[in-house]
Design a binder for these strands. Structure first.
Lengths: 245, 245
DNA sequence: AAGTGGTCTAGACCACCAT
DNA sequence: TGGTGGTCTAGACCACTTA
């Protein structure tokens, strides 16, 4: 049971513990929503004190990878919880409370990655990808048009039926069905103008200003797993970003 | 020397320590850039163990309020360091490396807060404010137009001369001259169209798409101290936002 | 060499949850 | 009631900075 760690020189012990723990998480040793072994057990397994083990888990908690529940255990962070619904969804009404989006899938196609997509997804040009177009409505009005690119390899049996049959977020589907846990996103925003096709879908005039968001979603080890271009009608909604605290 | 803490029931000791420490920081007991007393000294002063004291400071570090330097001390985070230059500045070239902005002050006026401004700044309608318009250039081309509103009360002697004579960021000026430490910002983004006046200043056509950013900057205790509306020409630049990690 | 923050340990006790 | 995470302590030793 006692698993001695290979200590890389000049690396703190708790970082080593965190690294090994992350490995186990990435390899699916415990399932999403499931509890990890108790802190005492993990400390014993890695041959470190509880304090050191806790410091490793502290960082995983700060990164949103796991969640502690006093008296209950430490769990893999789930994309299903309402609490996390808005962790990666940043469009809110300019006035009033947050709204839950309703998603309509407009297109589901298979294709091949071009140069830019391959580079950003860490795959090869021409590798098979899935291309998905979703229209997101808030308060029953279309607000966001999403175009996504996924490496086919990571989502072997994903079909339009499976995608639209989900009863939760897309990231929950990635996690529950494909064991892919989105931990981090990087977004780049610009202002653009609606072309005729997009204008029709979003119900705005051609040439209306739209917020364009280019997102890359990452899982463990900063491996990219999804590209997404979102076009947002910001007439009655806006994008929020809080830095610090 | 030993200062016993009033322990609020059901509040962990380290949270109390953090609260008292934050009070001292907010009241300027130590100056920006200056070192706090050593951890051992602070632990003794508050009558807690070093471990507890460290846990309090851990949170202040996570919030960017203070910075630890091994072998040297714990310092109030400074807005002057290059490292922090881009902590609150999120516009980068779409291609290539980050660029440092050059600021030109176009207007410096005194006025009175309207309803919306007063509400967001936590002051009363009609209270005196400063209105500043800055044009920010990247690689010698105008890219961002900033309109700022500051409560006059917090910046008693701020003049156009003092503003433009600074050799550092505006937030460094707030910190160094007025003891106001910007810790957090909240931003709301939308897409908009350039009107004639703005188009001329930014060198774009009227009706060109611009990224509009509404920012509120906060200091200790989440007290708002600045409103800022930025209009960004995103033809060759973009706004970045990384969530997680 | 003295002083600072960084790591690691071992153990006690508490608050909470499930049973 | 037993197991879990949460807090707090006391002390040892290490790594780094400054003078």
């Amino acid at each position: 049971m006692n698993q001695v760690l290979d200590r890389a020189v000049a690396a703190p012990l708790y970082k080593e513990v965190k690294r090994v723990l992350t490995q186990s998480l990435a390899q699916g040793e415990w399932q999403p929503g499931e509890a990890l072994p108790s802190e005492a057990r993990l400390a014993q397994r890695y041959g470190v004190s509880i304090g050191t083990l806790r410091k490793a888990i502290d960082e995983l908690v700060a990164e949103g990878v796991v969640v502690r529940r006093q008296g209950s255990g430490t769990f893999i962070a789930s994309h299903g919880a309402n609490r996390l619904m808005f962790h990666f969804f940043h469009v809110v009404p300019r006035e009033g409370d947050k709204q839950y989006p309703r998603t309509t899938t407009l297109a589901f196609r298979r294709g091949r990655a071009d140069g830019a997509q391959a580079a950003r997804l860490g795959i090869s040009v021409g590798d098979p990808v899935l291309r998905i177009r979703n229209l997101l409505s808030l308060a029953d009005k279309p607000v966001i048009l999403d175009d996504m690119v996924l490496p086919q390899r990571l989502f072997p049996d994903l079909s339009e039926r499976i995608l639209t049959a989900r009863d939760n977020t897309i990231y929950h589907l990635y996690q529950a069905r494909y064991g892919i846990n989105v931990l981090r996103t990087a977004e780049r925003l610009r202002a653009s103008l609606a072309d005729a096709e997009v204008a029709k879908l979003l119900g705005v005039r051609k040439g209306a200003p739209l917020l364009a968001i280019d997102r890359v979603a990452y899982t463990y080890h900063n491996a990219p797993i999804e590209l997404r271009r979102s076009l947002v009608n910001t007439a009655e909604h806006e994008y929020f970003s809080d830095i610090g605290k």
